[in-house]
Design a protein around this nucleic acid. Structure first.
Lengths: 342, 342
DNA sequence: ATATATAATTAAAACGATTTAGCTATATGT
DNA sequence: ACATATAGCTAAATCGTTTTAATTATATAT
């Protein structure tokens, strides 16, 4: 009720009997530059601390155009991968004196567009974006507008826009090669219907490994809806198991892996006896499964931290057009779902 | 690069040849109140649309003290419960024309304090807070300062602060009664070492049910570290199984349930043959477990939506001191981990 | 004809910080 | 002694909005 207003620069200035300019200068560490007397400077520091002054960031922003706010656009904050990524981004941001505003796009172009506008309107200094299908033009325009951006998880190779991402090709290459090494030949892949590079590269990594192993004829890719994958996954797996006699399945995201496990469970298909599995991203579901799941691990901490670092450099140094490209190597974690074939 | 500056009120005003005041008035729907001419009002609307004007929210906030920003303090955004809650809050916020800034406290008082200060500094209009142990004074002061707050997931019964939460007593009551009904008598509980009401109420619900069933002598509560629960859970379960001959375990959070499943897995204890289980919150881990886990379901969507609704009402109507209390009923979802005892 | 009401609009202050240009007093150079 | 340099500080503009009080012109009442 007794809504005490915060102490302002003016309050501090009045308390000492000087101008707000002087206080501002001293507190911004420009005392020398503006040749403020040493004793005066000291006094300002002391009094403003005593009065518990902290600058009004809104006012500072209005004047200077900086909010120390980072906008984060993910596809869904409740997706474990993105909530983990968000946590890392948050921590790194705090470390660098930023705070995160976020929004979820649901892989939808319009949502992405609206969200970005809202975040810019709130005055974010820069954006970390997980771009969705069809957002290339949007991102390009943003970059042209001079907005500091870093793409995360996926990117547009043709754009001059910085990104931090997994080596997606390597990811499925690792998975596929592992299965080949274990003696499987009828290896299939389940991936989203999306033209984003994370999906297409994962497909390429699989195809390439199969071809190099002389298994080009066995390439079998099922593509499922990005928005509502479950029914498609069910259909795909049923077909793979019953028609294609697939020996092993590579899933290209965590969500797909989990839908797959549900489906195989329902079909009473035993892992790994009836089919071998390589999942994506790990998690308790994989480790607590009756047959712990082999998976591709994404070093999401690095991916997320690099994104923040790049963005903050852009913001601070105005490196708007420097294209920083971070591609992190995946790791294969071998468990029980992909044993040597007898 | 060609950082085009946004069109301002002034730009629109100049284009028409009127004052910024007039434009502002019309765009805020106060034309009638200020008796602006109908033709003029129409023209302003038209031109500002043509020029693609959108207000600078920072400036607006500096003047009016509103940012349309909601601060969210959770304990950990990467915890599935809180990431799900965040997603709901985000959606509800957008619907009401707000955006969410968030931070994670890690159940730490100092972090919570710092975070709240940061968020207030960024000018949030109000806060949704998951309070941690020892934060009662902090929250009370905030309320006294006149900051709109709603607590989520946990609350302080003695404070005049609004909250939205699960009926925690009912939750463990449901779980315990279910196990009793199924014929178990040696029922134990695993809970955090925390004095927050969500934990203490869950303990009370269990104790009450046990006593009412004449099983007071069998009450067996293991309390584990909030910060690093894993080793404590392991010790607790080992003791419960080997020493106390427990027949059934009720877990009081999702994280504890999962740690418990890992431990039981390692100990080769079979569920439900060796021990029955009731978990908390559900999730793929429970459903895909070899013996799908019975659990208490928290209607997190309602809990989260109510929190936003209450907060926005506070912000808009200045209902700072109206204490809204929302307590949502849990549901028991019975699966295979708690069968009738033979 | 004079006072008063009403309609339509605007000037200017305010929010709280930063920064540029300028002011005053003392010190230095010649 | 006089111009100039320097040190130390301040006035005022600025960012983009909202709002209060004021202004002008016209209409109505007496």
């Amino acid at each position: 009720m007794a809504k005490e207003k915060k102490v302002s620069l003016k309050d501090v200035a009045n308390a000492i009997g000087v101008s707000t300019a002087l206080v501002s200068i001293v507190l911004n560490g420009k005392a020398k530059q503006y040749r403020i007397g040493d004793d005066m400077a000291e006094k300002v520091l002391k009094v403003s601390k005593e009065m518990n002054y902290s600058p009004n960031l809104i006012a500072r922003n209005l004047r200077g155009g900086k909010t120390q706010l980072i906008g984060l656009v993910v596809t869904d904050i409740s997706n474990p991968f993105f909530s983990s990524v968000s946590r890392v981004i948050e921590n790194k941001a705090i470390e660098l004196n930023y705070t995160v505003i976020f929004g979820s796009s649901d892989e939808n172009l319009n949502n992405t567009k609206n969200l970005i506008e809202v975040l810019l309107n709130k005055g974010v200094d820069g954006l970390i974006i997980v771009p969705c299908d069809g957002s290339e033009k949007l991102i390009e325009k943003l970059q042209e507008r001079g907005v500091p951006i870093v793409l995360l998880d996926r990117y547009f190779p043709n754009l001059n826009v910085s990104f931090s991402s997994l080596d997606n090709f390597k990811a499925t290459e690792l998975a596929t090669q592992h299965l080949i090494d274990q003696g499987y030949t009828r290896i299939s892949l389940i991936a989203y219907k999306s033209e984003m590079n994370n999906v297409t590269d994962r497909i390429l990594g699989y195809e390439d490994s199969m071809k190099k192993a002389g298994l080009g004829a066995n390439i079998n890719i099922k593509r499922v809806s990005l928005i509502n994958p479950k029914p498609d996954v069910n259909k795909a797996i049923e077909s793979l198991i019953n028609k294609s006699k697939t020996e092993a399945i590579v899933f290209t995201t965590n969500t797909l892996s989990i839908h797959g496990l549900y489906c195989l469970q329902d079909m009473q298909v035993t892992i790994p006896n009836d089919v071998a599995i390589v999942g994506f991203d790990g998690g308790d579901v994989f480790d607590l499964f009756y047959s712990p799941i082999t998976y591709i691990e994404q070093p999401y901490v690095q991916i997320a931290e690099e994104a923040v670092t790049i963005l903050v450099n852009k913001i601070k140094n105005g490196e708007q057009n420097k294209k920083s490209m971070v591609i992190i190597e995946p790791k294969l974690i071998v468990k029980n779902s992909s044993p040597k074939k007898d």
